[in-house]
Design a binder for these strands. Structure first.
Length: 490
RNA sequence: GCCCCCGUCGUCUAGCGGCCUAGGACGUCGCCCUCUCACGGCGGUAACGCCGGUUCAAAUCCGGUCGGGGGUACCA
C-alpha cells in the first residue's frame, strides 16, 4: 500500500474520437476526490481495442487535461511505480493474470458462435440475454471435436451463484442476482484481452481504492466484483475497490450527450473562448453543489469541499446558457492583465494584432483592454470589440447592417456636426471629446444621447456595439477619428 | 422481454421527518442604471410525477404505479 490514507483513484479513458465533456466531469470528480483526501490521481489509457483507438485522440486527451489543469500523479508522460500506463503496453501483465485465472478454473474455453447462442436462447425461450453457459463443462471429446472443426476458443469468466451487493458511493446499496449476469468474455479468440479483464486487473495492480465512473458502467460492476474475488483468490490483489457511479451528462431531450452534438466536444470550449475554470466550475455543478446558495467557486474551494457522498445520482442536462454565464462570472474574477494574456492567442488568430505583437500594438492593447475586459463573456469576443482600434485605415470597414440603420440621412447630419465640433478640439482627451459632443449634439441639436452617439459610434468603430465611445476615440487618436467621420460623410 | 439505475421550478440544484406558505443559480418577463454592449441593482414567473401506507407531523421513510435512462457484445 502507498501513503496518503491509501486513497488512489484513476481516470481511464479510451482514446477514441474527440474527448467528451462527460469525460471531463468524470476526470474532475476523480481529481477533486483525490486532492481532497490527499490521495493519488492515476491517469491510465485504455487502448485495448486497436481497431478504434487513435494517436490523435490520445494526444487530444493529454492536451485537454493540460489545458484544464487537472494534473495527474501517475500516468502518461509523468510515469510512476506502475508504469506503463497505456494498456497497449501491458500485454504481458494481462497474459499472466489470465493464465493464473485459468489455472484456478475461474474461467473456461468457449467455442460457441454468436449465432449458436442466439439460436439456443430462442429455442429455450429464456428471458435472460447473453451467454447461456453451454461450454461450462465440456468433455475432452467435445473440445477435441471443436478443435478439429478449426474453432478457436475465447475465454469466459465463470460467474458464481448468488447475490452480488455493493454500497455505491453515490447511490447506496445495489445488488444483482448473478443468474442475470451471464458468463462473459475475458479475451478474444485471437488472444487479445478485453476491457472486462484489463480494467479490473489494472485497477488491482495499480491499487485503486475508489472507482468513480459513469453510470453506463453500473451494470458491469457485478461481474467486476466477481472477477475481483477471483483476483484476490489467486493473490493478485487483496481487496476490492469501492465503486461510485456518476450520473450522465445529457444533451437535448432525454439522450446522453452524443459525439454528434457540438457541445459534447471538450476542446471546443477552449477554442470557443471558455476559461478552463469556467468550464470546470459549470461541469462540477452537474451533479454536485458546493452550498445551497452558491454557484461560483475556484478549484481550490471545490477540493476543500468535495464529498463524493454529496453527488446527486440524477442525470443532468447540459445547458450552454448557464455554462456561458458561469464562464462569464470567472472572466470577471480575472485581472485585466490576465484577461489580456489569455485573449492574446485569439487576437493573433483573428489577425487583430500581429505575431509577434508590435510594441505599439502591445501598448495600445494595454490601454484598451480595461475598456472591454468587463464587457465580454468569452475570450473570443475580444477581437470584435477591439478590431477597430488596430485595423489599418485603408482596411477599416463599417458594418453594413449597422450603417444602414444608423448612418441614414439624419445620422450623417449628426456625424457632420460631430466632425465640426471636434476638428479644432484641444486637448484630444476623453473628457474634452465628451464635453464637445455633448454640447454640439445633445444640447445643440437637441438629440437624445443614444441617437447622437449611436451614429458617431458606427462611423468611428464600425459597429453599433463597441467599447465606450469617448475613450475609444481618445485611443484612436485625432487623425484617425476625424478621418473616419469624414469618410462616413463620403 | 429481462436486469439495474433515476424522478424537486423550462434547466442545474438546496432539502437527508417539524426551520418549507420549498431556498439559490441560469433562463425568461418587467423596472432601474446607462453613449451602444456588457456589468450591476430591484421585482415577478415557475417545481416536490401519481396513488397508497408509516407518523402527532413527509418533498424527506416504505410499497406500488407511471415516466425516463442504461445494460443485455469476441465495444468501452
Amino acid at each position: 500500500m502507498s501513503d496518503n490514507n491509501g486513497v488512489r483513484v484513476r481516470m481511464a479513458p479510451s482514446p477514441t474520437g474527440s474527448p467528451h465533456v462527460g469525460l471531463v466531469r468524470t476526470a474532475l470528480y476523480n481529481w477533486a476526490f483525490a486532492r481532497h483526501h490527499g490521495g493519488t490521481f492515476v491517469f491510465r489509457i485504455e487502448d485495448t481495442d486497436a481497431a478504434r483507438n487513435t494517436e490523435e485522440s490520445y494526444n487530444s486527451i493529454i492536451e485537454l487535461m493540460r489545458w484544464l489543469g487537472l494534473d495527474w500523479d501517475e500516468g502518461p508522460e509523468v510515469g510512476g511505480p506502475h508504469a506503463p500506463y497505456r494498456q497497449s503496453e501491458r500485454a504481458d501483465l494481462y497474459a499472466d493474470a489470465l493464465a493464473r485465472l485459468r489455472a484456478s478454473s475461474h474461467t473456461y474455453e468457449c467455442y460457441c458462435t454468436t449465432a449458436e447462442v442466439d439460436a439456443r436462447r430462442k429455442a429455450s425461450g429464456s428471458k435472460v440475454m447473453g451467454y447461456d453457459g453451454f461450454c461450462r463443462e465440456l468433455t475432452s471429446e467435445q473440445v477435441a471435436a471443436f478443435e478439429a472443426e478449426g474453432r478457436r476458443p475465447i475465454v469466459r469468466f465463470r460467474m458464481p451463484e448468488g447475490t452480488i451487493t455493493w454500497d455505491d458511493l453515490v447511490r447506496g446499496e445495489i445488488s444483482f442476482e448473478t443468474q442475470f449476469v451471464p458468463d462473459y468474455a475475458l479475451c478474444r479468440a485471437n488472444g487479445e484481452p478485453l476491457y472486462t479483464l484489463v480494467n479490473p486487473v489494472d485497477d488491482a495492480l495499480m491499487e485503486i481504492t475508489h472507482v468513480l465512473r459513469g453510470e453506463d458502467l453500473l451494470s458491469s460492476t457485478p461481474r467486476q466484483i466477481a472477477l475481483y474475488d477471483a483476483l484476490i483468490e489467486i493473490g493478485l490483489t487483496d481487496s476490492t475497490p469501492r465503486f461510485g457511479h456518476l450520473p450522465y451528462v445529457m444533451g437535448e431531450g432525454n439522450k446522453k450527450l452524443s459525439k454528434r452534438d457540438p457541445e459534447a466536444h471538450a476542446l471546443a470550449y477552449r477554442d470557443n473562448g471558455f476559461l478552463p475554470e469556467g468550464l470546470l466550475n459549470y461541469l462540477a455543478l452537474l451533479g454536485w453543489a458546493i452550498a445551497a446558495d452558491r454557484d461560483i467557486f475556484t478549484l481550490e474551494e471545490m477540493v476543500e469541499a468535495f464529498d463524493i457522498g454529496d453527488v446527486n445520482p440524477n442525470p443532468a442536462r447540459f445547458d450552454m446558457k448557464k455554462a456561458e454565464a458561469i464562464n462569464a462570472a470567472h472572466m470577471r474574477l480575472l485581472s485585466v492583465e490576465d484577461i489580456t494574456h489569455r485573449a492574446l492567442p485569439f487576437l493573433k488568430a483573428d489577425g487583430v494584432v500581429g505575431d509577434p505583437v508590435h510594441d505599439s500594438d502591445a501598448q495600445l492593447l494595454e490601454l484598451a483592454m480595461p475598456l472591454v475586459a468587463e464587457r465580454i463573456n468569452k475570450l473570443t469576443e475580444a477581437s470584435a470589440m477591439l478590431g477597430f482600434l488596430f485595423v489599418a485605415e485603408e482596411a477599416f470597414e463599417v458594418d453594413a447592417a449597422d450603417a444602414e440603420k444608423l448612418l441614414d440621412e439624419k445620422g450623417l447630419d449628426v456625424v457632420k456636426a460631430a466632425h465640426d465640433a471636434l476638428v479644432d478640439l484641444h486637448p484630444w482627451s476623453t473628457d474634452a471629446i465628451q464635453t464637445a459632443l455633448q454640447g454640439a449634439l445633445v444640447d445643440g441639436l437637441g438629440l437624445k444621447p443614444r441617437v447622437a452617439f449611436g451614429a458617431v459610434r458606427v462611423a468611428v468603430t464600425g459597429r453599433r456595439v463597441s467599447p465606450p465611445l469617448f475613450e475609444s476615440m481618445e485611443l484612436l487618436g485625432r487623425d484617425r477619428s476625424l478621418g473616419r467621420l469624414q469618410r462616413a460623410l463620403g
